[in-house]
Amino acid sequence: MAETAEASEAAGRAEPRGRVVEGLRAYRLIAAMWIRSTMAYRTSFVLTTFGNFAMTALDFVAILLMFSRVDALGGWSLGEVALLYGLSGISFGLADLAIGSMDRLGRRVRDGTLDTLLVRPAPMLAQVAADRFALRRLGRVTQGLLVLGYALVVVDVDWTVAKLLLMPVMLLGGAGIFAAVFVAAGAFQFVAQDASEVANAFTYGGMTMLQYPPTVFALDLVRGVTFVVPLAFVNWLPACFVLDRPYPLDLPGWVAFAPPLVAVACGALAGLAWRAGLRSYRSTGS
């Protein structure tokens, strides 16, 4: 009896650090349940995992086919484009693996199942993020790693310590930026439940755009993904540093190292949007 009371006390304590730990714990528990659920249909799991891998692989095959007809795209060679592709794919894949089901939020609002999550003693963001957790999404990460490996073999990089350090930093920063976009898109669905597809424009659309060199796109589009939805920090700017290429929009050299900062800032904004969205749901019930 005393133990139960204690446990409820602990769960109720509202320290921010406690919330994060609680959230991660709930995330782990729910994600584990989803993994077990998918294993109930093994054939389908194998097929979807393979499908995920094949889908992304064919995506790259399309680029290979393009380069079977041309030597460069926007002045970038196949190896360099492969580098962009790999970085974009891994960053996006990690974010997609972690919280890729945020687009189901609108459906949960519509059918009322969101309420069943609200009566659980766990932070909502963690519960929604872990919803439909799917290991098959590792397919994209794997494929991204393979393409990145290929790129690093083919491209002649003048490696320095800074460049080596930048590689993992940009992958994690990039995943953070994409994750923030996922969360913001989720928050938007509290307001417009049917608009989940808008998120695809920024997530899948953003990832596709980042697979190609910035020199291909119109300047306004490049400005948009640098200053409005700062996806350029995922791979374009750091990759320009690694490849010793001129930066788009004449940006200063240090921006290549900004991805973690940009990720934190985006995360904070997305977090605020999420809180506002949840508050509006709890005040309107729709």
Partner: peptide, 9 residues
């Protein structure tokens, strides 16, 4: 039992 895999392919 679960056709999601086929759907993806």
């Amino acid at each position: 039992m679960d056709g999601t895999g086929m759907l993806h392919m």
